Lab assay of single mutants.
Amino acid sequence: RGFLEKAAVKKMAKAIMADPNKADEVYKKWADKGYTLTQMSNFLKSKTAGKYDRVYNGYVIHLD
């Protein structure tokens, strides 16, 4: 289950990176699912340092 969630989160993160207008909708879905910042950090780990920082930081702001 965790692997599928991670894959889904990364897919949506890539969608945000391609079209930032989708961010609020995606952040709301993640918040509704109760994803914590720790979970998001783990889901968005990448071999490329900083690749998903913008998405993660946007989610931090959304939760605030």
Rank of each mutant, 00 (worst) to 15 (best):
S41Y: 12
L44D: 02
A23Y: 02
K33Q: 13
Y56G: 01
T38R: 09
K11A: 12
N21A: 13
D64S: 15
K28N: 09
V55C: 03
L4A: 13
D24Y: 10
N57Y: 14
N21R: 13
D32C: 15
K45L: 09
D53L: 07
K6L: 08
A8T: 13
A15Y: 06
Y35R: 00
L44F: 04
F43H: 04
K22P: 01
A8P: 03
K51Y: 13
K11T: 08
D19I: 03
T36N: 09
M17D: 04
K11E: 11
I61T: 13
M40D: 00
Y35T: 02
V60R: 11
H62V: 05
M40N: 00
P20C: 11
F3H: 12
K14V: 06
T48A: 10
Y27V: 01
F3N: 12
M40L: 13
A15Q: 12
A23E: 05
Y35A: 02
Y59Q: 00
D19G: 03
K45Y: 09
I16M: 05
K29W: 10
I16W: 00
K6E: 09
D32I: 08
M17A: 04
V26G: 03
K14D: 15
D64N: 14
I61L: 13
A8Y: 12
V9R: 01
V9S: 01
V60P: 01
L44M: 02
D53Q: 06
G34F: 04
F43D: 02
K11M: 11
K11I: 10
Y56H: 03
D24L: 11
P20A: 08
L63T: 04
T48W: 08
F3M: 12
V55P: 01
T48C: 12
T48R: 11
V55S: 01
M17R: 04
K45V: 08
D19F: 06
G50V: 03
H62F: 15
N21Y: 09
S46N: 06
I61Q: 14
F43G: 02
Y52M: 04
A8W: 15
K22N: 07
W30A: 01
K28M: 08
K10Y: 04
T48N: 09
V26C: 07
V26M: 08
D24Q: 12
I16L: 07
D19T: 05
Y27I: 02
L63R: 03
Y27E: 01
G58I: 03
V60E: 09
A31E: 08
Q39W: 04
V60C: 10
N42V: 11
Y52A: 02
I61D: 13
D19H: 05
A8I: 13
K10V: 14
S46W: 05
V55Y: 03
Y52K: 01
L37K: 11
K29D: 14
S41V: 09
T36G: 05
A49W: 07
L63H: 03
L63C: 08
A18H: 10
K33R: 10
D19W: 07
V26K: 01
L4D: 12
R54W: 14
K14Q: 14
T36W: 02
T38P: 11
K14N: 13
K10M: 09
V60K: 14
I16S: 01
R1W: 05
I61W: 08
Y56T: 04
T36E: 04
A31W: 05
D19P: 01
L4E: 13
V9T: 03
N57L: 13
D64K: 15
K29C: 15
A18C: 14
S41D: 09
K6W: 10
Y35P: 00
T48Y: 07
A23H: 06
S46D: 14
A31Q: 09
Q39N: 05
V9H: 01
I61V: 13
K11W: 07
K33C: 15
I16Y: 01
A13I: 03
E25Y: 09
A8V: 11
H62I: 04
M40K: 00
A49S: 11
Y56S: 02
T38K: 10
H62W: 15
F43K: 02
T38A: 14
H62A: 07
D19L: 04
D24P: 14
G34C: 08
G58N: 04
K29E: 14
K28S: 10
A13P: 00
L4W: 14
S41F: 11
D24K: 10
A15M: 12
A15K: 07
K45F: 08
I16K: 00
F43L: 09
F3D: 13
A31G: 04
K28V: 06
A7I: 13
V26F: 05
E25S: 09
E25T: 08
A31D: 05
Y59F: 05
K47M: 07
A49T: 10
G58A: 04
M12C: 15
D64Y: 11
A8K: 15
V55T: 02
T38H: 12
T38C: 15
D32T: 08
G58L: 03
L37V: 09
G50N: 09
D32M: 10
D24S: 11
T48E: 13
K6P: 06
A13F: 03
I61M: 14
V60G: 07
Y59G: 00
D64M: 15
D24G: 10
V26S: 03
A31T: 05
A7C: 15
A23V: 03
Y35I: 07
H62K: 04
K51C: 08
N21K: 12
K45R: 09
A15I: 12
K22E: 07
M40I: 15
K14E: 14
K11Y: 07
D53N: 06
L37P: 10
Y56N: 02
K45A: 10
P20S: 05
V9W: 01
N42F: 12
I61N: 12
K29L: 14
S41E: 12
A18S: 12
K28Y: 04
L44P: 01
L37D: 04
A23D: 02
E5L: 07
G58P: 03
A15S: 09
V60D: 03
K45W: 08
G58F: 03
V60Y: 05
Y27H: 01
A8E: 13
V9K: 01
D53A: 07
K51M: 10
G2Q: 14
A7Q: 13
F3S: 14
S46C: 12
G58K: 00
R54S: 15
Y35V: 04
K51Q: 10
P20V: 06
K11S: 09
Y27M: 02
Y27G: 00
A7N: 11
D19V: 04
W30S: 00
K6M: 13
N57E: 15
A7F: 11
K45C: 15
T38Q: 14
A13M: 03
R1S: 13
S46V: 07
A13E: 00
G2Y: 12
H62Y: 15
K28A: 09
D32H: 09
P20T: 05
L63S: 02
N21L: 11
K28R: 13
M12W: 06
D32P: 00
K14C: 12
Q39G: 03
M17C: 09
K51N: 06
E25V: 08
L4K: 14
